[in-house]
Design a protein around this nucleic acid. Sequence first.
DNA 1: ACCTGAACACCGTTCAAGT
DNA 2: ACCTGAACACCGTTCAAGT
Lengths: 247, 247
Amino acid sequence: MTYTLSSINSQEGGGLAQVPKDRQQRSVPRPRLNRETVLRAGVELADQVGIEGFTMRTLSQELGVVPMALYKHVANKQELLEGMVDLVWNEVTEPDAGRGWKQGVRDRSVSLRDALIRHRWAVGLMEAAGRPGPENLRQHNAMLGCLRQGGFSFRTTVHVMSLLDAYVYGFALQQKTLSFETPEESAASAAATHDAESAETAARYPYLLEVVAELAKEGYDYDAEFTVGLDLLLDGVEALRGSWRSA
Amino acid sequence: MTYTLSSINSQEGGGLAQVPKDRQQRSVPRPRLNRETVLRAGVELADQVGIEGFTMRTLSQELGVVPMALYKHVANKQELLEGMVDLVWNEVTEPDAGRGWKQGVRDRSVSLRDALIRHRWAVGLMEAAGRPGPENLRQHNAMLGCLRQGGFSFRTTVHVMSLLDAYVYGFALQQKTLSFETPEESAASAAATHDAESAETAARYPYLLEVVAELAKEGYDYDAEFTVGLDLLLDGVEALRGSWRSA
DNA sequence: ACCTGAACACCGTTCAAGT
DNA sequence: ACCTGAACACCGTTCAAGT
C-alpha cells in the first residue's frame, strides 16, 4: 500500500525549494521517462492524494521533471487517466472458468472490489467514456466467457455481468466516501455527526438515529457486508440460469 | 429536461460580449439572488454541461452576475455542490410503507435511479464526504422506516438498504458513461468502436465480439434491464427477511 | 445586505527552443 | 528523441471597496 513514492517525496519534494536546480537534477540519477513509468507514478500519486489533488504539475514534480515533459508520453490528462485505469484493471484477477461459473465470477468480483478499494479514485473512471484499454477488454471478455461456459444464454450473460458489476461499483462508491478506516471509527464518526444536532434531529429522523446508535455500539464490517450481498446476488442469478428471457 | 436555462442563455450568454455592461445589467431585470436560486441554477447548469464544465464562473455568468457574488450565498464550490445534491434528493419519492415494504422500496429505488439519470453529474456526489443534507437524511430515514415496518430486523434493514443503494448507484454509474441516447445508437457505437480494430481484436476477445455483434442486431434496453435486476434483488432480500444474522 | 474589481495562486496545454 | 521556458486561457477564492 505504501509504495516508493513517499521516499521519493522526502528526497525531492522536501528539499526541492532549497537545492539549486542543476544540483537537484544530478543528485537523483533519474532514469529516462517512458509511458509505463508515468502511468505507474500516476497511480501511486492518485492513491495518495486522491483524484482532486492529482494534477499534471504535481505528478511531474514527483517524477523530477517539468510538467511539459509528460506530454511526450501521454497525449493529455484524460488519456493519462485512461492509462492509469487500465493499470487498475490489470490488477483484477480473471475469472477461472475451471472452478465453475459461480466461484469464478465470485472471485473476480471480490478481486475487482479489492482493486477499487486500493485505488479509490478509480471507481468513477472504470467505465468512463473513452476507449476501453486492453486490460479492460481482456477482463470483460474473460467474464463473459466464464458465464457462457457456465451454461448461461447469451442474453442472460450480458444481464448478469451488468448486474454484478453494478453491485461492485455501487458498493465501492458507497465505501469510498466513508473515509474512516476501522468500523469503530466509522460508528464514532456517524454518532458524532448526528449527536451535534441532537434533540430536534432525533425527533425528525427516528429510524436514522436508531441506526446510528446501534452502529456506534456494534460497529460495521464493510468486507463482510460486501460478500454477503454478493452471495445473495449469485444465488439469485443461479436461479435464473436458462430462464431469463430467451433461454 | 430542458429548463429555462437555454432561454436565459440566448438572452444573456449570446449577446454578452456585444452589449455594454450597464445596459446588459438593466435589460434583464434580474431578481435578487438568494441561496435557492443559486442552487437551482447550479442544478440546471450541471445537467446541461456536466460536472467538468460546471464552474463558479460559468454559473455566475448564467445568473448575470460577477463570480464573487455567489460567495454571498454559498460558502464555496464544495458547499454549493452539496446543496445541489440535496435538491436532487428532494426529487426522490419517499417509500410508501403503506403499500408494503417491497413495493415501497421498489418505488423509491426506481425514483432514485430516475433522478440519477436526470442529473448524471450527481451519482458520485450522492454519498459524498460532506455533511448529508436534510433531504438526504429524510430520505434515508424513510427508507429505514419502510423496511423496519415491513418486519425486517434492525441489522438486516441496514444490510438491505446498503445492498439496494449499491445496485442503484452502480447501475446509474454504468449508464452514465454510455453517452448515447437510444439503444440503437448504443449498439452502433459499440460496433463501430470494435470494428475499427477488426481481425486481431476478434481473435483476442471472442466473447466480447459476440456481445457487440448481438447487441448491434437487437439493441439494449437499460430501463428494462434495471428493473429486472432490481426485482431479482428484492426477491433475494425477501427470502432473508428475519433470517440474516441476528433476526 | 448585497454586489463588484483587482488580484493571487493555482490549473491544463501550446509552441518554439534547447540538448 | 526527449526535455525545458515562457506564455495563454482558464480555475477557485480573498480582500477591500462600492452601493
